Simulated assay, not measured.
Amino acid sequence: MSTLEEHVDVGVPIDRAWDGLHRVENYPRFLAGVREARTEAGGRARLDVEAGGPAREFEAEMSDRAGERVLEWRTTGAPRLAGSFSLLAIDQDHTRVQARVEYDPATVRETFGGPKGFAQANAIERLVRGDLEQFKEYVEQER
């Protein structure tokens, strides 16, 4: 498994950033390739994703460690992906959003296509960085 960690500082209080991460139906606004997202019973979310090939549907389990401001997730089928979003208040009006993604490069390549090796790691890093920047824009506009 490979692990990627990226972060972005957003100009909103921690509660607003936390609420933004929990609006699953708005994931298409900031997660590249997500066409539709919906919450389901039992802490699950269903995502319709189109990335590097035909559209696919993924189910993810999501769990909160609200006291720590950590949202963890993992896919329930193939490809096996897992990660978390951790929030840290910088000050009253600014929050650091830390994204952590765990993935198997071979599985990601089989599922979504794309380059091999270091080039794939760079592509995934750019994707996560772009998603964080889009989250920043989304949550700051939701004032």
Rank of each mutant, 00 (worst) to 15 (best):
M1G: 12
S2H: 07
S2E: 13
T3L: 02
E5R: 14
E6D: 01
H7P: 03
V8D: 03
V10N: 06
R16N: 02
W18A: 12
W18I: 09
D19H: 10
D19Y: 01
G20Q: 13
G20I: 14
L21S: 12
L21V: 12
H22P: 02
H22T: 06
H22R: 14
H22Q: 15
R23I: 04
V24H: 00
V24K: 09
Y27C: 11
R29V: 10
F30W: 10
A32L: 04
A32P: 05
A32Q: 11
G33A: 07
G33W: 05
V34L: 04
R35T: 14
A37V: 09
R38C: 06
R38Y: 04
R38L: 12
T39R: 15
E40T: 12
A41L: 09
G42F: 00
R46I: 14
E50D: 10
A51M: 14
A51D: 08
G52E: 09
P54G: 14
E57F: 02
E59Y: 08
A60M: 01
D64P: 05
A66G: 04
E68S: 10
E68K: 11
R69F: 10
V70T: 00
V70W: 09
E72Q: 15
W73T: 09
W73G: 12
T76P: 03
T76G: 03
G77M: 02
P79G: 13
P79L: 05
F85P: 07
S86Q: 15
S86R: 12
S86Y: 02
L87A: 08
L87V: 05
A89R: 10
I90S: 07
Q92C: 03
T95S: 15
Q98G: 06
A99I: 02
A99M: 03
V101P: 03
V101R: 00
A106E: 15
T107I: 13
V108E: 07
E110L: 09
P115C: 10
K116Q: 04
K116F: 06
K116I: 00
F118L: 10
F118M: 06
A119N: 04
Q120V: 11
A121R: 08
N122Y: 00
A123Y: 01
A123S: 11
E125I: 04
E125L: 06
R126W: 12
R126M: 08
L127G: 13
R129T: 15
R129V: 13
G130D: 13
L132F: 09
F135P: 02
K136C: 13
K136Y: 14
E137G: 11
E137K: 03
V139S: 03
E140N: 06
Q141G: 15
E142V: 02
